[in-house]
Structure formats: C-alpha cells, structure tokens
Design a protein around this nucleic acid. Structure first.
Length: 270
DNA sequence: CCCACTGTTTTAGG
DNA sequence: GCCTAAAACAGTGG
C-alpha cells in the first residue's frame, strides 16, 4: 500500500497505537530487507522509545530520539499489531516487540520492503531521503517548482512518478492526477502548458485521497485493519473498458514507462 | 503449465 | 540524459 495517501494512513494509525512504546527486542527473519547486519539493527533499536511516526514521500519514519528508522513498504508492505509472543505468519519478516506486551509485525508477501537506520541529524541529507522532491501537500511544492521539471521529451506520467519531481506519487495517483488535469499520460513534459492546473490537481487528488484514508485496490485491508475509501472515487485507474464518468468514452489501458496506465481517450489529449 | 501482471525502486545496457 | 528490460519476490488470473 505504498503511495503517499496510504503511507499517510499507516502513519496516522501507528501514531495512535504505537507511539510512546519502548522496543524490547527485534526479530529479523529475512535479513536482506535490513540495511546492514541484523545484529547491528537489533542492538541499535533495543531500548529505544518511539516518539512518533511521520511520512516523507512514500517513506514511513520512526522517530527514536537520536535515531530514525526509515521504512519503505514498496509494493505490499503492511504492519500488524499483535501480542508479544504471537507467532510470525509466513509472510511476516520483522517483528518489533514492545515492553508493554504488544508487538508490531511487518508483513510483506513480495519481500521488497526496506529498513534503514539513520542518525536523526542526517536522515534528510543521506539516502534514501536526500534526493526526494518537495512534499506535494506542503507550501514547498508550487507551480513554479513543478515547472522546472516540465522540460524535455519524457512522458509526463514518467515525470510525475520520478520522486525527485515531487515526493509520493505512484501508479494509481499519477493516472488519477492526469485525468483530473485533462492531460494524456504520454504527453511530452515540455508540451505541458498549464503547470498551475497540474499542480492543483496533484494537491487536490492527494488531499482527497489522504482524507479518504488512501485506496484499497486488490488488497483486502490496510494496515491495522484500517480500510481506505479512495478506491470508490477512482476515475480511470483499473477502469479499462468502463465509460468515462465525464464523457462516457471507454477508458483505455496502455503502457507508459513499463507501467500499466489508464486514461480517457477523449478527455485527456496531448 | 506458461505468461503477463501487480500500489516500487534501482541498475545495466543501448 | 532517456528508454527499455531486468532484478529483487510471491501470488493471481487468463
């Protein structure tokens, strides 16, 4: 459940349920997910108290005083609140056990997720967060900052998926944003005229999705049993063959930058 | 069974 | 610099 609105929902749930807990121990069953050695990871986390969780782009940050744990859920990462001592399910690869008898299990069928521990002082100036573009829902993101990327021959969808342009847009929201803006996903970046409108659609779509708690498509429930509702408001993504809500044309599925891409052939022009 | 596809990111090669 | 394909991995659907 990786894009900005979904990670934001995870962050909110974890702040309500996990903040303030102290880590007693960490179990690592699949080491490649962890940057560095599991032993160093476990030793550094033991005894740390979780101040809060935050989000940067699609990354979830655990604030642990002088250390920050940077977690990326990639395609299918999820967190589940369990009791300490609960067995780890087949697809749970890391378990954080707390002193109060609870535990947080990281579940990831495809094992693509990553964990990296950083000194808090360096978390934003070292990989993976150092090259991220502005937060789309903050004042740091403006039509002017967007305009600096509206150059060259790249497809506009590719530009939106580039995390340096703006942080947090993934495949679902790129499609929805371009529908909102009336822009064909294959339009060359340098041909985009109305940066104001595109920037506004980025903010509008993401804001509404955050408000809805993200989208749950092809996955049952979000982390900690919280379900998103934004999938009910999708206009084009996963809607191949269905009539456009605006003009009734059949939604088309194509491929842009190797990613499945949905658009309305009538409402979205080059 | 085989192939394509899946909410990501990074890397290699042309 | 840009594009594609592939890689990490597992499950699903045609």
């Amino acid at each position: 459940m990786p894009e900005l609105p979904e990670v934001d929902s995870v962050k909110t749930s974890l702040n309500e349920l996990i903040s303030g807990k102290t880590i007693e121990s960490v179990t690592v069953r699949y080491a490649p997910m962890i940057e560095g050695t599991p032993a160093a990871f476990q030793n550094a986390l033991r005894g740390k108290t979780i101040e809060s969780f935050s989000r940067r782009g699609k990354y979830l940050l655990w604030h642990l005083g002088n250390k920050t744990l940077v977690s990326h859920l990639r395609m299918e990462g999820k967190y589940y609140l369990k009791d300490a001592g609960a067995p780890m399910d087949a697809h749970e690869h890391v378990a954080f056990v707390f002193e109060d008898g609870k535990a947080l299990h990281y579940h990831d069928v495809r094992k693509f997720g990553t964990f990296a521990l950083r000194d808090h002082a360096e978390v934003y100036t070292t990989p993976p967060l150092d090259k991220l573009g502005p937060e789309p829902l903050s004042d740091a993101f403006t039509p002017e900052t967007l305009r600096t990327w509206l150059k060259g021959e790249r497809a506009i969808k590719t530009v939106l998926l580039d995390q340096r342009t703006v942080a947090g847009i993934g495949n679902i929201y790129a499609d929805e944003i371009l529908f909102c803006a009336g822009i064909h996903p294959k339009t060359k970046a340098r041909r985009i005229q109305d940066a104001d409108k595109l920037a506004r659609c980025i903010k509008d779509i993401l804001q509404k999705a955050v408000h809805d708690g993200g989208a749950s498509i092809r996955s049952y429930k979000n982390t900690l049993g919280v379900s998103g509702r934004f999938q009910l408001h999708l206009s084009v993504h996963t809607k191949e063959g269905e009539p456009c809500c605006f003009c009734r044309s059949a939604i088309v599925k194509t491929k842009v930058g190797g990613r499945g891409t949905y658009y309305c052939p009538r409402c979205q022009k080059h």
